[in-house]
């Protein structure tokens, strides 16, 4: 069976990263923006695991790094959701266009 080449995997991860970035810039719902950021972080995870498997199979650095990224993304999401709940209490909305107290 033919193995999938590294470039294919890198293509997927890069596409995922920029889909995430596009979502972050165009979506106005904060929860969706948070999901876009998760996409970006997960694409980096794919990168790390792929590099580790294809280029440096005798090391574990990349796999460890992706484990830590998953953990930190969870922590970040927890704090972000707490902040969003508080924002909802004060603004009655989780749309970034409604949070316009401060500009320029």
């Amino acid at each position: 069976m033919n193995e999938i080449p590294l470039t294919h995997i890198l293509f997927v991860s890069t596409a995922l990263f920029f889909i995430g970035m596009y979502g972050l810039f165009t979506r106005r719902n904060i929860i969706t923006m948070l999901m876009s950021i998760e996409l970006m972080l997960n694409s980096v995870n794919i990168n790390f695991v792929a590099f580790n498997k294809y280029l440096f199979p005798d090391k574990l650095d990349g796999i460890f790094f992706s484990l830590f990224i998953i953990t930190i993304a969870a922590a970040e999401a927890a704090v972000a959701i707490a902040i969003i709940i508080n924002l909802y209490r004060s603004h009655n909305s989780i749309d970034v266009d409604d949070a316009t107290e401060m500009k320029f």
Binding site: L34, V79, N86, E101
Partner: peptide
């Protein structure tokens, strides 16, 4: 209101 807006901007942009 301003405080929660600031925190939201900080966490999204730093993430």
């Amino acid at each position: 209101k301003k405080s929660s807006e600031a925190a939201m901007k900080l966490i999204i942009s730093s993430a």
